[in-house]
Design a protein around this nucleic acid. Structure first.
Length: 597
DNA sequence: TTAGGGTTAG
């Protein structure tokens, strides 16, 4: 680090290239005060426009210095200080600073100003403009920027086209993104990662995986990188593709990308989401380099698996390691508290956000409402919502309805549902939450009405699905499913165990069945819920001694939860069930969630 | 001076 004594220093270099180098090292060290003093000095001495290199005056280095310090407005001040007419490089630097630092609208405005003063768009300015457009997610802006790029000599430049692909993908124009990508004469690892990420974000897992395989085949060594890996591992974890994910893990190991904290974080998430929390812990403990994401990943892993005190302990360790908790860290902690019903701890963590300068977002409020209402403090939850400084979102009201269902408070549920619909939501979840809350309170007519309202609005209920992965194949079931080739065996084994369960004291709880029908019919309605069918297949195909791992897209119902406890007791099998919220590990008649979920 | 950006839950 060169020493710098400012402002009355005799030691400042006088040549422009040396001053440029000085700025470079100041930006690497994020040394803002010294950089600003240097800025003042350059202004006073009139050195600002001296060329540091053939194409870049010193003012450009200043713009970049402020960009690296995360201060786009000071970049703009430096730009404004530079004498007009500004060279194309000055515009590119300014655009990069605005686009990289979260100011997409000013970036687009600056791009327009650049065109107005007749500076032609280049391979340096177009990518930044596209990045800003991507952040704005505006299809019309995306199309016009693309049209503009086609008129330049850079329509096939790999930077320009990659940025346009990303822009289309983020503007809900994935098909356009793909068309552009397919036409690219030259694709590199960034282009591939961009399109894979686009498909992954859109939830098109199969396409993302196909593209990943194509990338492996097409790219010259060194091939894909840590970004591509973390992206595709995330696809495996949302789709709970454990076997595929593990084989990609092996690839990472061979290429040493597993030491990247980003790859490590997504692997932790993969193993945790697939139910292998011990593997997730081991991976974390062996990580050579941890970042905040890795800490958050391990926090959420322990929270999802009900290891609440592990999560709290990790939080202490994280702080001791010098990491400052962020927005997501607090979500992890509040989720952990919610899973265990720890209201006081949750309040403490919520209050702690301000100590770290974090403004709680809607998700934090939703987590608090979830915590309070699940714990039965419905009135307190309502009061909490009323005092929120921001507008309550769909998930805040949804959390309240869930709590109301558990505690059979149909009136508050109805109030929350009205509020929820006022937010303009049309998701099936909202209607189903309300309908279930009515059914739980025994108000079947209202429950039916809520479902009818949902149909009238043309909203379809999300189908409950459960699945089990075995020998690299995923078997999916819906309630009452008879499509599986081993269906007869599955039903037979469930019937057989069912008799033993009832002898052991299991009584079906049909209170969550919506229709007001007779007992036998209600029993049939729940006896073959999708998760039980998947577990039934598990009895047939998963070797003794290994846990049966089943995934479900919706929340597990009260009766299935009870039934699976009996299933584990009567068969001596461990059953791991992941619902849309958390993990349940059933063993010897008990569940790891402590019946609180 | 230019493109992808990772962890929450959904």
């Amino acid at each position: 680090m060169p020493l710098l004594r400012l402002p009355h220093t005799p030691y400042l270099p006088t040549s422009a290239p040396a001053l440029a180098n000085l700025l470079l090292s100041l930006s690497a060290a994020r040394s803002l005060p010294k950089g600003q003093q240097l800025h003042a000095h350059l202004l006073k001495s009139g050195l600002l426009s001296s060329p540091a290199t053939a194409t870049r005056p010193l003012s450009n280095h200043l713009i970049t210095f402020y960009a690296r310090c995360g201060l786009p407005l000071l970049s703009r001040a430096a730009f404004d200080d530079s004498p007009s007419p500004r060279p194309a490089a000055a515009w590119s630097s300014l655009l990069a600073s605005l686009a990289q630092n979260g100011l997409p609208l000013p970036a687009i405005a600056a791009f327009r100003s650049m065109l107005l003063v007749a500076v032609p768009p280049s391979d340096r300015s177009l990518p930044s403009a596209a990045k800003a457009a991507a952040a704005l997610s505006s299809p019309s802006l995306a199309r016009s920027l693309h049209a503009l790029a086609l008129k330049t000599p850079f329509a096939e430049d790999v930077f320009v086209v990659s940025s346009l692909v990303d822009m289309y993908a983020k503007s809900a124009l994935l098909a356009e993104a793909r068309r552009l990508f397919d036409l690219m004469p030259h694709r590199n690892v960034v282009s591939w990662s961009t399109i894979i990420y686009g498909y992954a974000e859109a939830g098109l897992d199969a396409d993302a995986l196909r593209l990943f395989k194509m990338a492996l085949a097409e790219l010259e060594p060194p091939g894909v990188n840590d970004f591509t890996y973390s992206c595709i591992i995330r696809v495996c974890s949302t789709a709970t593709l454990l076997e595929l994910g593990s084989s990609i893990h092996a690839h990472c190991f061979k290429t040493s990308f597993d030491s990247s904290p980003f790859v490590g974080s997504s692997l932790i998430s993969l193993y945790s989401k697939c139910g292998l929390v011990e593997e997730a812990y081991e991976l974390f403990d062996q990580m050579p380099d941890r970042n905040i994401g890795a800490w958050n990943a391990i926090l959420i892993a322990s929270a999802q698996h009900g290891h609440i005190h592990v999560a709290f302990h990790r939080f202490q360790e994280m702080k001791a390691a010098g990491f400052s908790p962020n927005f997501i860290t607090f979500l992890c902690l509040l989720t952990a508290c919610s899973h265990a019903g720890l209201v006081d701890e949750g309040k403490r963590y919520f209050a702690l956000t301000s100590e770290y300068g974090i403004e709680p977002g809607a998700q934090h409020y939703a987590a608090m409402v979830d915590l309070l209402s699940r714990a039965g403090r419905i009135t307190e939850a309502v009061a909490f919502i009323e005092e929120m400084p921001i507008e309550p979102t769909e998930s805040v009201w949804g959390a309240l309805i869930t709590g109301c269902r558990i505690h059979k408070d149909a009136d508050t549920a109805a109030y929350a549902a009205t509020k929820l619909f006022e937010t303009g939501s049309s998701s099936s979840g909202a209607h189903m939450l309300l309908s279930n809350a009515y059914a739980a309170a025994g108000r079947y007519a209202d429950a039916a009405q809520a479902r009818k309202a949902m149909r009238d609005r043309g909203v379809r209920k999300e189908t409950g699905l459960s699945w089990l992965e075995t020998a690299g194949k995923v078997h999916t079931f819906v309630s009452g499913d008879r499509r599986h080739p081993r269906s007869d065996e599955i039903y037979a084994v469930l019937e057989e165990v069912g008799e033993r369960m009832e002898k052991a004291g299991y009584v079906p709880d049909t209170s969550q069945v919506l229709r007001d029908v007779g007992g036998e019919e209600k029993r049939a309605a729940i006896w073959y819920h999708s998760e039980r069918l998947a577990i039934g297949l598990g009895f047939l195909v998963v070797p003794e001694g290994q846990p049966i791992r089943v995934m479900k897209n919706l929340r597990v119902c009260v009766d299935c939860h009870t039934a699976i406890k009996y299933l584990s007791k009567c068969t001596g099998r461990a059953i791991v069930l992941r619902d849309n919220n958390r993990f349940h590990r059933f063993e010897d008649g008990a569940c790891s969630c402590g019946d609180y979920w």
